[in-house]
Amino acid sequence: MRILFFGRGVISVQYAWAMEQAGHTVEFYVRQGRKETFGSSIELEMWDARKGKQLVKENWNVTLHEKISPGYDLIIVSVNTEQLPAAAQLLSAVAGSTPILIFNNLWQDLKSSISPLSMNNVVFGFPGGGGGIEDNRLRGGFLKMLFLEQPRAGTEAINNKVKVLLESAHFKIRWIKDMQNWLWNHFAMNAAMEAEVLRLGSFAAVLDHSDSFANVGRSMREMIPVIKARGGKADATSLLLTKIPPALLGTLFNKLVFAKGSLARLFMEYNNSRAGFAIHEVVREAKKLGIALPRLAAALENSGQHKEDVSG
C-alpha cells in the first residue's frame, strides 16, 4: 500500500517505520515550512515490542510533503487532539475518496470530531505506543497490541483494508465494539493524568511520586458522572481506577504497570507533550452539564491555566 501519514509526530513516525518495514510505501504530510525544518531524516531510539522487546536505533530517511496529492491507498491521521478539526477540514477538500484512519484521542462525539469528513469514509483506532520527539530525535516505542473500532454499517471495506495493513506489519488488533465510549473513558483518564503532570511539572515526574496514581483514581471518580451524563458508561479501565482504594491503586501502578524497566514507563518518561488541553475540554463539558470537577479545576487554577476560557 501507499500510505500518507498526516503529521510527523511520534505516533506517525513509529507506525510509519513499522509499515515501511512490512514493505509498504510511507510518506508524511507536514505544514508549510516544516519540510525544511524537519529535514529528510529522523533519529530513532525506540522499542519495538511486536516480537519480544527490541531496541531500534537508526537514522531513518523520510519523505515529507507540504501538499496532499491523490494516489494514496490510505491516509492515517495522528495529531494533537486540538489539531484534528483543522486536519479534517483540510482533508475534506483534498483527500477525495481516499479512506482515512483516525488514530487519535477524542472527546467530541465521533461525527462532530471529523466534520466535514464523511463517517462512511473514516474508521477510528488508537495506537499502543508513546514517547516524544526532541531535537529531531524520537525516543519511545510501541506494543504489538493496538485498538480498532468494529466495522460500522458502510465502513466494512475500509475496516478490512486497515486490518490487512496492520496485520501485515505484525500488529495484533483489539476490536472495540463501542469506540465512542472507549475514547471518552480514555480521554478522561488522560485528563486525570494531565492534572498530575501540571502538579508535578512533567510526565516523568509523575512516575516518581507514590501518590500520583492514587490522585488519578480520585480524579477519575469525579469524571465518571460526566461520561454518564453524555450517555456513556465507565469501562473496565475506569472501573479499575475508581473502585480500587487509592493507596492500593498507587502501589499497583508504581510497582506493576509502570515498573522500572517496563515499556509503559519508558513511554511516559519520554513524553514531552504539553499538558492541559484534555483537562480544559473535560471541565468545559462538565460546566455545561452542571457537574463540579474540583480536582481538575484546582489543577488548572494552580497551574495558571484557569485564565483560559473553559466556559464553552
Rank of each mutant, 00 (worst) to 15 (best):
R2S: 01
I11Y: 09
Y15C: 10
M19G: 00
G23N: 08
E27A: 00
Q32I: 00
K35W: 00
T37I: 10
F38R: 08
G39N: 05
S40F: 06
L44H: 12
R50C: 12
G52D: 07
L55I: 15
T63W: 08
T63N: 08
L64K: 02
H65M: 05
K67A: 12
K67H: 02
T81K: 03
E82A: 14
A87K: 13
A88I: 08
V94H: 04
A95C: 02
N105F: 09
S113Q: 13
S113F: 14
M119I: 07
G130K: 03
G130C: 05
E134M: 12
E134N: 12
R139E: 09
G140L: 08
G141D: 12
F142M: 10
F147M: 11
F147Q: 14
A153E: 14
E156C: 02
W184H: 09
N185T: 07
N190E: 01
V197T: 01
L200M: 06
L200S: 09
V216K: 00
V216H: 04
G217R: 02
S219A: 15
R221H: 07
M223H: 07
I224H: 09
I227W: 04
G231T: 04
G232L: 10
G232F: 14
D235M: 04
S238K: 00
K243F: 06
P246A: 03
L252C: 09
L252R: 06
F253M: 11
A259C: 12
R265S: 06
E269A: 01
Y270M: 13
F277R: 13
A278I: 04
A278C: 13
H280A: 12
V282R: 00
E285Q: 04
L289N: 03
A298D: 15
K307P: 08
